[in-house]
Design a protein around this nucleic acid. Structure first.
Lengths: 246, 246
DNA sequence: CGCCCACTTGAACGTGTTCAAACGTCGTGG
DNA sequence: CCACGACGTTTGAACACGTTCAAGTGGGCG
């Protein structure tokens, strides 16, 4: 995969500053490129792992399955992110990480990551910061789940994903791919699939989005933002990144 | 405050191993001891901060307030934790941190923490791990909020707090302090205060707990664990710590 | 004594769930 | 080429969990 770390770099540069020496160090990281099929786990709940993966192409989600079969999706991840970087210090997975659609990931051994971090305090800070931003997103989701009505929550999720894709250049003109089926969106929102379907129809009826076959078109960004009360500061992006506006 | 870092050490030793040199380094940390009144913020949403605080005595919670006045409590914190350690790398607060009851905290400047971390890769790992465990707890809460009925969720919260207090020696014999009023518990569970009241009565009627004036007595740990489906592995405690049992 | 705060109770209401069935599309195999 | 099955989406209707509003209780403290 040519420029595997370019994807990682683009993401890192949206949340902090990368020096040239860091760039060189990252380029030297041994990465094993793997193609994951839809729904395939990159890491599974309960397992002790010795590698993390950077998402290069596609879409991933983290999730937890309950004894009764219920599932809660905890996060969606976009290219350049390292969804299971936390496993570097919490080697036993307390949830699973899967490809939402067919995706390309790059596995990096923990030993190689540790060696890299020893050599660059700046990358240490950046990687730590990346895990802290995951944490900030969890907090935001908790607020959405606990205190917001279904439509607003769904609108917020759309705003979040669009913003994340936009800043790495993977979304323009209010169109993007959200390769999740309604049941997955439901599991992310903490709702039933039936109600998620009706909530989507609500958003459509309000002329805020189109959503079909994993393709979203935002019809009114200001309308969505207002409904969602979306404020991107919790994403802790660099002050100089270009946020969506319109 | 004699042995301010002892409290911190006790917590750190439940999640990892601290060397003697680390102990010495920690003991040298300049700490400013402050008493916080009930409800008083140690750090507030939107502020840029240059210090973090270790909870020495009492109880804290993190929360976010919505434009409509609603509040979501994101976490409860027990002595020895550094609830806003994340602000080391996310200096702009995206939520607030407050004392749940009158508490003693020790403020540590970020510059001093950074200096410490530069000298000890082991403490860096431990501190990073601590923030990752916060993250793991957020994930668990998301599952509880999204996929569990109110009683089970409440039971889970009780199990979590008892376990955290137990491992640092602040709870024995199934009795502990949970100095939160019902409205705070409601805001933590994502429920209304009224329904939280009824859910508490439900737990009492099931003979699982007593709860009065911030004092909890667990009447049947196995019963609570079963109802909550409580599995402490998400707390990522050291394998050799003594978990509650009975 | 009187007020404030937290807790409690009742009753109507509403958002979201559950169960069940139907529809459409796509890929596969007869 | 069509039949079939799998899967995702959509719809209807009954139900339930949790909310909201409103009032009342009780203890602690000035």
């Amino acid at each position: 995969m040519p420029g595997a770390i370019d994807t990682l770099l683009r993401r890192l540069e949206t949340i902090g500053y990368v020096t040239d020496t860091d760039r060189a160090l990252l380029a030297d990281l041994p990465i094993r490129i793997v193609e994951l099929g839809r729904g395939e786990d990159a890491a599974s709940d309960g397992n002790v792992v010795s590698q993390s993966c950077v998402l290069l192409q596609g879409f991933m989600h983290r999730y937890k399955v309950l004894p009764d079969g219920g599932r809660q999706i905890l996060a969606f991840h976009t290219p350049g992110e390292i969804p299971d970087l936390h496993s570097l210090h919490l080697t036993k997975m307390d949830h699973s990480l899967a490809a939402t659609e067919r995706s390309t990931v790059g596995f990096i051994k923990h030993t190689d990551i540790s060696a890299l971090l020893e050599r660059s305090p700046n990358i240490t800070r950046l990687f730590w910061r990346a895990t802290l931003i995951d944490s900030a997103v969890f907090r935001m989701w908790m607020v959405e789940m606990g205190r917001r009505p279904a439509v607003a929550h769904l609108a917020h999720l759309v705003c979040e994903i669009y913003t994340k894709l936009h800043v790495i250049g993977l979304a323009r003109n209010w169109v993007f791919r959200l390769p999740a089926v309604q049941e997955e969106i439901a599991d992310a929102l903490g709702l039933s699939a039936v109600h998620t379907n009706r909530t989507l129809q609500d958003l459509r009826a309000r002329q805020l989005i189109q959503f079909e076959a994993g393709n979203v078109r935002i019809l009114s960004w200001p309308g969505l933002v207002r409904l969602a009360l979306f404020d991107p500061s919790y994403l802790h992006l660099r002050e100089d990144v270009q946020l969506p506006e319109g």
